[in-house]
């Protein structure tokens, strides 16, 4: 564990609490992509299967359980409790275009051709692109509630912090995880446009609006 990774994980936790706070206080999941949230459930469930056969640390296990539980809870809130506030007609990204290629990539790039390792690779690739339905929705509506942008920023910061973590681990432990690093760089790259608008508008006190 190092400073960057800890801060990244805390940022990830913060993003989930911000999202829950947004849903609970506005009593609405308007502006949140159900598809992206469903993909996160798939990511966590496929990656954290190792809860059953690998123990890393108490921190690691507790975080894994939290990410699985919270992502399922968010889906429940969107699907049942606040269902009327979700508009599927603007959440139209075709996720089969993400699931299929990620599955094929995981068959090609994995550390061992075994069930759990293929699912692990799949989850890494899927996480890299899981935000796309959400960003696509943002692009379509052209604006977002400020709290939603804080959620996305925290999620993006979490990914960005994993990059210095990998650099640090390379120099201190000689450790390189090419699959995670490649997917992680792609994933962080997807946030660059968003970050630009977030830093130049939202953090200056303006509303998140994309140019027409």
């Amino acid at each position: 564990m190092n400073f960057f990774r800890l801060l990244g994980d805390l940022s990830h936790l913060a993003s989930i609490f911000i999202l829950l706070h947004k849903i609970q206080t506005t009593r609405s999941c308007r502006g949140i992509s159900f598809k992206t949230q469903a993909l996160y459930v798939a990511v966590f469930v496929t990656r954290y299967l190792d809860l059953f056969f690998r123990y890393v640390s108490l921190y690691n296990s507790v975080m894994k359980l939290f990410f699985i539980a919270s992502s399922c809870y968010i889906l429940y809130l969107m699907k049942y409790k606040y269902r009327p506030t979700h508009d599927p007609s603007i959440d139209t990204f075709r996720i089969e275009y993400l699931l299929g290629p990620c599955f094929v990539l995981s068959l090609i790039f994995n550390y061992k051709f075994s069930f759990s390792e293929i699912l692990w690779s799949f989850s890494i690739f899927l996480e890299a692109v899981a935000i796309l339905p959400q960003l696509f929705m943002l692009q379509r509506t052209g604006e977002a509630e400020t709290i939603t942008t804080h959620y996305l920023a925290a999620l993006g910061v979490y990914r960005a912090l994993y990059i210095p973590n990998w650099i640090y681990r390379y120099f201190t432990e000689g450790l390189v995880d090419p699959i995670a690093v490649t997917a992680g760089i792609v994933q962080t790259g997807l946030y660059l446009d968003f970050f630009y608008v977030y830093f130049t508008k939202v953090l200056q006190g303006q509303k998140f609006e994309l140019p027409a």
Binding site: R47, R54, S57, M63, F67, K112, S114, W120
Partner: peptide
């Protein structure tokens, strides 16, 4: 199950 690599990150 035997580990191919250690996945200690989240």
């Amino acid at each position: 199950e035997e580990d191919a690599v250690s996945h200690d990150e989240l």
